[in-house]
């Protein structure tokens, strides 16, 4: 019991962790942007009256929701060489898996949100001459996003945490860098505490702002 806690090696190696933070952000932000955009369009397919469009999108959504993310990450890395003979870099494979996974989850959020908006809203928008796209952008989406915001925030947090799984593909993100340091120095306690703290510092400001935004949007209630 003579283990002395020593955080100095965390501060000494901050540059290693910082590099990890950069890569984590490079995974996280694009995965969110691509995933939400993709999710919106998949939701449109899910809502289509044509089974040819709605059925495949349902399969897509369920495949991603009902399998472990870890397998999805690894699968993208190995599937491409096996299926079409080109190797994706670990980073691209991880980003793809995260973005597609996010698109599947957010598609369900968008779909629920859009169907919960009364159809009178779309009609009122069209009645003043708006196109489908204008009505979506100006009338439906703002209301959907307001309703989705708590679930959306959860998803954004989830993706940040999920991105740590990319370490199994040796993507040099924060988790990987942390594991590298702890393997090098045998100081997992200090290093993983620091890594957890950094994740918290990355995620918390976002949830804080989302909470403020929620309040702001609630003023029209």
């Amino acid at each position: 019991m003579n283990y002395t806690i020593d955080f100095s090696l965390v501060t000494d190696n901050w540059i290693v962790l910082w590099r990890g933070v950069v890569v984590t952000l490079q995974l996280w932000i694009p995965a969110i942007v691509l995933g939400l955009t993709g999710g919106f369009f998949i939701a449109q397919l899910r809502l289509s009256k044509r089974r040819l469009l709605s059925a495949p999108s349902l399969v897509y959504v369920e495949l991603f929701r009902d399998t472990p993310v870890l397998i999805q990450l690894i699968w993208f890395f190995y599937a491409f060489p096996a299926l079409i003979g080109t190797q994706l870099s670990p980073f691209v494979a991880a980003l793809m898996a995260l973005a597609l996974n996010t698109s599947a989850y957010s598609a369900e959020l968008f779909r629920g949100g859009i169907t919960s908006i009364h159809r009178g809203q779309m009609e009122a928008a069209k009645a003043i001459g708006m196109s489908q796209a204008q009505a979506m952008r100006r009338v439906i989406l703002p209301q959907v996003i307001k309703r989705m915001l708590p679930a959306l925030t959860n998803r954004v947090i989830e993706v940040a945490k999920m991105s740590s799984l990319a370490s199994v593909l040796s993507v040099h993100e924060l988790m990987y860098q942390g594991r590298l340091l702890s393997a090098t120095y045998y100081r997992p306690f200090e290093i993983l505490t620091a890594v957890a703290f950094i994740y918290f510092m990355l995620i918390y400001p976002g949830t804080f702002l989302a909470g403020r935004l929620e309040k702001h949007l609630a003023r029209s209630n």
């Binding site: 009364h118 809203q121 009122a124 069209k126 009645a127 001459g129 196109s131 307001k146 949007l217 029209s220």
Partner: peptide, 24 residues
Amino acid sequence: ERQLCDVRERLGMVFQQFNLFPHM
């Protein structure tokens, strides 16, 4: 769609349920 938008712009409609945009 362009033509329908144009027609709807020229025919104003008022609904039983008002259908105001609640976020505006």
